[in-house]
Design a protein around this nucleic acid. Structure first.
Lengths: 151, 151
DNA sequence: TTAATTGAAACTTATTTAGTTACAAATAAG
DNA sequence: CTTATTTGTAACTAAATAAGTTTCAATTAA
């Protein structure tokens, strides 16, 4: 199983809430316009983010808010909220237990995969939503300066 | 996108070739029995492993051989052979370029995802097929000892 | 009271992955 | 040389997963 765009869309939602709060109404419709998906998809993801305690939403009302400061929300927190205990690598569960290889490969690969996965997740854990927002703003500032230069 | 069982099945094939060479004929049929899949799936994967220079196969003849010693085949070599430049995380390619978030999130996430992915791949690069084979043999030895003890 | 919005279920569609069928091309054995 | 075995590959089918849609009850806000 590959990690779906749900993860990247969720980070998008959280960054959007932070950057556009007070600027435009934070309805699922407005957020969906930025992701170019449907409002239902956005609400589905926000429901998971809400349950995980990353945002606070109110049934019937727009304008969700981040439940913590962006410095204290890591990409791994978001990953957990959306993908739960999903794995980056998949192990074939149906191998012949009679065979030396088939009978031991699952446990064996599980160990090595776990290590690789943990390395990746540790990186995610060390990256905050604030890092993402900062990078977005810097990239936008560069674009704005470019545009200005051309005038 | 999640990484499919193709990767784990490929490691399985290589370990099987090493452990069973000279013991039983290494036909796609025999290998498939250990993985509990079809011979065609095995041949498909072996074709990719052959093209990547990890094994040497002969059209019409059984008994493929490892092209390098297991110490010199890393899990990342196998990953590259089978998955190529596949990514562990997927970025939503269709976001609104007019929006500060939508217009910069792809590049931004690409950077952070790249870091996490590299951490995982580095772990795979530091794990060899020999490590896998050794672990399989140790696990089997433990099982054998358990069985002996019960007699 | 009405309009706008969320939350959630059920469904459809699209994409990806796994497995199958079929067969030409090569090898191996008698 | 002939036959059986095997690989390599293409084309197809089936299954699993992901993305998107439709619908509507429940809630809030004006």
């Amino acid at each position: 199983m590959k990690i779906s765009t749900r993860f990247s869309d969720s980070i998008h939602i959280l960054a959007f809430i932070n950057i556009y709060q007070g600027v435009i109404p934070l309805t699922s419709n407005n957020i969906a316009s930025s992701i170019e998906t449907s409002p239902v998809v956005v609400r589905r993801l926000m429901s998971a983010l809400n349950k995980a305690g990353l945002i606070n939403t109110v049934h019937g009302a727009a304008d969700p808010v981040l439940a913590k400061s962006p410095e204290n929300i890591s990409l791994y927190d978001i990953f957990l909220a959306i993908e739960g205990d999903a794995h980056l690598f998949t192990i074939d569960e149906r191998t012949n237990p009679q065979c030396i290889v088939g009978g031991n490969i699952q446990e064996t690969l599980n160990g090595f995969y776990q290590q690789a996965e943990t390395a990746a997740k540790a990186k995610l854990a060390r990256t905050s939503l604030q890092d993402v927002i900062d990078t977005i703003r810097v990239k936008q500032a560069i674009k704005d300066a470019e545009k200005e230069r051309r005038n």
